[in-house]
Simulated assay, not measured.
Amino acid sequence: MNASALKIVLCALSLAICNSAPAQTNYPSQPVKVVVGFAPGGSTDQVARIIADGMAARLNQSFVVENRPGASGNLAAGQVARAHGDGYTLLLSAVGLATTAAFNPEILQAHPTQDLAPVALLAYTPNVLLASDKSGFKSVADVIEYGKKNPDGLSFGHSGYGGGLHLTGEIFSVRSGVKMTQVPYKGVAPMMQDLLAGHINIGWDNLSTALPVARSGKVRALAIAAPNRSPEMPDVPTFEELGYKNMDFGAWFGMHAPKSISPKLAKTLSEQLSAVLDDEKVRQRIAALGIQIIKSKSPEAFLAYVDSNITQWKEVVDQANVKLNK
C-alpha cells in the first residue's frame, strides 16, 4: 500500500471513530422505552414508573413505561429480547420469569439468564400469608391447628398456578406437615375478593399489594416469608420466628436489556440505576409501597442473583412435588 492509499484509509478510520463516538457518549439521545409485563397499577408497574421518573430526571431524557401484560411477564420479555441492543428498549423484569424458568421453561419467550442481558437488581418485596377476618385465624398456629383437625378443609388462594405465590403456599404445606388445597386465580384481585368473602381459608400475596387491605383490617397478615420483619408491618412475625426454616420467598424487580447490548452500556445503565436508587425521594416512594430497595453491584452480580433464584424455585418445585399438568 502506497503512502497516499494509507493516508486515505487512516482518514476514513478516523472519521468512522469520530462519527461513532457521540452514540456512546450522548446516551440517551432519544426517549427510552421501559417495557412492563403487567397491567398498570400493580407493583411492577409502580416500580417501573418510579424508576423511569428517576432516570428521566437524572439523564435529562424521557423514560416511557409501556405496559405489555400477559403470561406472567413472558410477552414483555419476548418483546425486549427481540429489540435492538442499543439501550432504548429495556425490560422492568420480575420474579415471574424466574419461577417460569424453574417450573415450565418451555413456554418462555425469553429465558432471563440465557436470552436477556442483566442490567441491575432494583427492589424486593416478601410474600405474606393472609387470612380473612371472617376465618377466625389470628396466627399461623391457628391455621395449623385447623388444618390438622380438618384434613381436607384447608385451602389457600394464589394469583396463578406455577407462580411464586402458588409455590410458596405449596412449600409451606410441606414444611408445616398440613394438607392444603391450592386454589388458583387469574391474578391477586379475584383471589382477594374470595378471601374477603370467606370462600377460601387463607391466601398468599406480596407484601406490597397486601399492605393496603391489611391496613384496612379486612384481612389479617399472619406471617412474612422474609428474614426480618417489615417496617411497614412491624407486628407481623416472620416464618423464621415461628420455627419454619428456609421460608424466605418474595418478588424481586430488576432491569434487563436485549442480549445484544454492549457490556459497556449495560454497566453504564447499572451505575445510573444505582444512583437513582440512592435518591431519597425515590427511596421514599418505593418504601411507601412496602417494597425494599436491593441493589446489585454489577450486571454480573444480578445475573448470579437470578440464576440462584431459579435454582431456589426449582428446589421448591421438587420438594413440594408440584406437577406441571394440573
Rank of each mutant, 00 (worst) to 15 (best):
T209W: 00
A210R: 05
A210L: 06
A210P: 09
L211A: 10
L211G: 05
P212K: 14
P212S: 10
P212E: 09
V213F: 12
V213N: 08
V213H: 07
V213I: 15
A214F: 00
A214S: 15
A214W: 03
A214T: 14
R215A: 09
R215F: 02
S216Y: 08
S216E: 11
V219P: 03
V219G: 02
V219K: 00
V219Q: 00
R220T: 11
R220N: 13
R220I: 06
R220D: 00
R220F: 01
A221F: 03
A221Y: 03
A221T: 07
L222P: 03
L222K: 07
L222I: 10
A223G: 02
A223C: 05
A223E: 05
I224G: 04
I224V: 15
I224M: 09
I224T: 04
A225I: 12
A226D: 15
A226L: 03
A226P: 06
P227W: 05
P227K: 15
N228I: 03
N228S: 13
N228A: 11
R229H: 11
R229K: 15
R229D: 08
R229I: 10
R229V: 13
S230Q: 10
S230A: 14
S230T: 12
P231I: 09
P231H: 09
P231R: 05
E232V: 13
E232Y: 04
M233V: 11
M233S: 08
P234G: 08
P234K: 14
D235L: 03
V236Q: 01
T238A: 13
T238W: 06
F239M: 07
E240D: 14
E240N: 10
E240F: 02
E241I: 00
L242M: 11
G243W: 05
G243F: 10
Y244I: 04
Y244R: 01
Y244T: 03
Y244D: 07
K245G: 10
N246M: 03
N246W: 02
N246V: 03
N246A: 14
M247T: 04
D248A: 03
